[in-house]
Design a binder for these strands. Sequence first.
DNA 1: TTGTATGCGTTATCAC
DNA 2: GTGATAACGCATACAA
Lengths: 345, 345
Amino acid sequence: MKKPTTIHDIARKANVSSATVSRVLSNSDYPVSKALQEKIRRIAAEMNYIPNLLGKQLKKNVSMTIGVIVPSIINPFYSSVVFGIEEIARENHYTVVTCNSLQDPTLEDEYIRTIMEKQIKGLIISSISKDKSLLKNSIQMGLNVIAIDQTIEEEGVSQIKFDYRKGGYMATKHLLSKGHSRIGYVTSRLDRPSRQSICQGYLYAMKEAKLEPIVEESKSEELYNAVFDFDTGKKLANKLLAAPDRPTAIFACNDMMAFGVINELSQQGVKVPEDISVMGFDGIDFGLMIHPPLTTIKQPDYDMGKLACRLLLDKINGEDSPTFDVMLQPKLLERNSVLPISERV
Amino acid sequence: MKKPTTIHDIARKANVSSATVSRVLSNSDYPVSKALQEKIRRIAAEMNYIPNLLGKQLKKNVSMTIGVIVPSIINPFYSSVVFGIEEIARENHYTVVTCNSLQDPTLEDEYIRTIMEKQIKGLIISSISKDKSLLKNSIQMGLNVIAIDQTIEEEGVSQIKFDYRKGGYMATKHLLSKGHSRIGYVTSRLDRPSRQSICQGYLYAMKEAKLEPIVEESKSEELYNAVFDFDTGKKLANKLLAAPDRPTAIFACNDMMAFGVINELSQQGVKVPEDISVMGFDGIDFGLMIHPPLTTIKQPDYDMGKLACRLLLDKINGEDSPTFDVMLQPKLLERNSVLPISERV
DNA sequence: TTGTATGCGTTATCAC
DNA sequence: GTGATAACGCATACAA
């Protein structure tokens, strides 16, 4: 393991100054004679030169890296987002540092600190912590931030929002349009604005239709975990089934819970959608793979990641960095877990 | 956006040398008087000091970062692996750069190059490319590499292997033990050693039982994609159904394909497991969420990630870095998609 | 115990 | 066109 070649090594071998080598190998537009260019490139290749970005970055005060903080990439929604981010980052020669916050504010701050120390200038974050003081401070120090999924009411933070409320409204309206009137809503703990918004959409649609809302909220607050949501869906479905006046349709706050609902219903001999219709929320691919394929609201995860990264890079590179909000629109994915009330058996 | 404070700024304000500041703030064991320590720490805090790791890393020639290259974190198997890696990395104050190679050798090399340039000393990789010359070269330059999932026959590369062959064998034996004799095997393109090994395990078990193997291989070679595997499963299941002598059990090379198989069977009115039993391979959580819950072979994804990262960090930090192989063992996850032939209806 | 000075690998500002 | 040299922020060998 010999130590790596530097521009100085190349300079010595080529009988030129390291300045010239730098100018050539960093593709600067500074004029260097064709002859020297070729010579230097040849020698660099011969010597297996690998530029040390640490040096370059220290000098130029950039890191060509962006940070991403999400609750957990185990969650297919976030893994799609990160996948989209990474794609755009790669196209622009940026690398991505992925951080799983596990919805732990302490971890979140730890990551932000590391990101700042590593001189990373851009961050895409789905933040969960209440105390945004470190984030705020970091922004003042020059960090460019795009918030996804979770709203951050902080000056200078651009948002990629998703119209959760409309999504909740659309889902409920869809169920209503199929003739359902006893529509249950199952949701994980209503402590995040996104969850609250979906619920508001549901409530609003029900109110509009002059119907009684039926909300089952899970009070537990475990760390983010797919199987946990699934189990929650099962539990809440159970509650709904036990009620004197069973709903004819159940709307779940995310797909994973909807899977749990469907599973529990099937297990209890309740047919989906013949007996009870089920709607999800997220539009992850697995919805296609279960039986029946899940009717759901599509949240554009992958595209959200791509967009977030594009906007972040613009912000990092742009002289003017206006703060902006983007509101992505929900889309109904009509599959087979919802049946018109008229066709119920 | 004022420019960040350095140890020099602090030194000036504290009327000490920057060396002393460095010694205090980097928690060096170099002796500094209690009084000065406190003074320096206080001023550092007042000035909102954030150490610039670029400087530190350039000086010490470390980067406290590891790289991870996997085909795609969209794949739940890999997202679990990466999640495990990230957990151990965090505990050790390392950050993780995540790269999705999309099974594209060009991209893979591009990432390796970037990793070297960023002075990253450790890499966990599921490599797909045939030409390992760049990787080999990087190892000689001091890169520590742990190969997961895909074997890399290169000197100095430690492997976290998984006994695919035994997994394939165990799955088939399980089916055999339930009395099945017409057992079909559906697999994506047999161009990766892991896929071949599973198939070999299947073939060996069949041969041992003196039974005729039935292998359906997909010839298409799309980029890694969950829905694609699902569709492949559907297609291959179809072929198997069309055969004159239908199998009573189908073993799929991964869970996603097994979902496709189950879906197609259900759609064609074939009941799982009453009419045909289905086995998967991977043990991803979603297997729990479908109906019937998928009997499968567990590949310890999350633990594999944790182990890989632990071994990598040992290797980076250890004076002696012996090359080693770890062979993780498959585990049967018995759920409800397999029925003894005697109980078939 | 503290300070001075040098260098990590690179780019940028000069001068030639 | 090219070269010498000074930064970038930090850690450390050496001096004091």
